[in-house]
Simulated scan of single mutants.
Amino acid sequence: MTTPEQRLEELGLTLPEVVAPLAAYVPAVRTGNLVYTSGQLPVVQGKLAATGKLGAEVTTEQGAELARVCALNALAALKSEVGDLAKVVRVVKVVVFVASDPSFTDQPKVGNGASELLAEVLGDAGRHARSAVGVASLPLDAPVEVELIAEVA
């Protein structure tokens, strides 16, 4: 059986270092068999990959790719808490925040970037309930932010 880390390698991806918190919080918290990640921005090698609003400076396709980056960062935060992604029983819930121009309504398509990555890496354990919410702004003018809740063994 293929492990999540092997799937990441097959996808040509590596888990990044856990993104340092921007304020007074921690990247992930475990309570019982649940791990909650803090909201993860599309940070690559310590820098925000893009800024702006969906429907203005950022396209839907770019937003979906940025959501994938956020989900990868969320997996890194999750792994930092449990030590091994093979311990993930299932991703229970994902929330995708999309900084949106007032006329933008494709938040679910942006969220698919995160959802599809989780399914690619974790298989059926990566299928989850989800909300994709348009917001006026996000920290550092990020276009997308993703948080998740995972059940772990």
Rank of each mutant, 00 (worst) to 15 (best):
A86I: 03
F97Y: 14
Y25I: 05
H128W: 12
A132D: 10
V26M: 05
G123V: 07
E5V: 15
G39V: 11
V92Q: 11
D101T: 14
G123S: 08
A64R: 02
E61M: 06
A28W: 08
H128K: 14
A153R: 11
P102N: 13
A74R: 00
V18G: 00
I149G: 09
A71C: 01
A86S: 12
R90H: 06
E65C: 03
Q62S: 08
D141A: 10
Q107A: 14
T59K: 03
A76K: 01
R7L: 07
A28Q: 05
Q107G: 13
E57V: 02
E61P: 07
R127I: 14
V35I: 09
V44H: 10
A129R: 11
L85T: 03
G55W: 11
V94L: 08
G83T: 02
G83W: 01
L75V: 00
E147M: 15
T51W: 09
G32R: 08
L122Q: 10
A28C: 03
V29G: 02
A71W: 00
T105P: 15
V144R: 08
G55I: 04
A125K: 10
V43H: 07
P108G: 14
S80F: 02
P143K: 04
E147N: 15
K79Q: 08
T3E: 02
P27E: 04
G39Y: 14
L66A: 04
L72D: 00
K87A: 11
V133E: 14
G39N: 10
V96D: 09
E81F: 05
K109C: 12
V82F: 04
R127V: 12
A24W: 13
G123L: 06
E17N: 09
S115A: 15
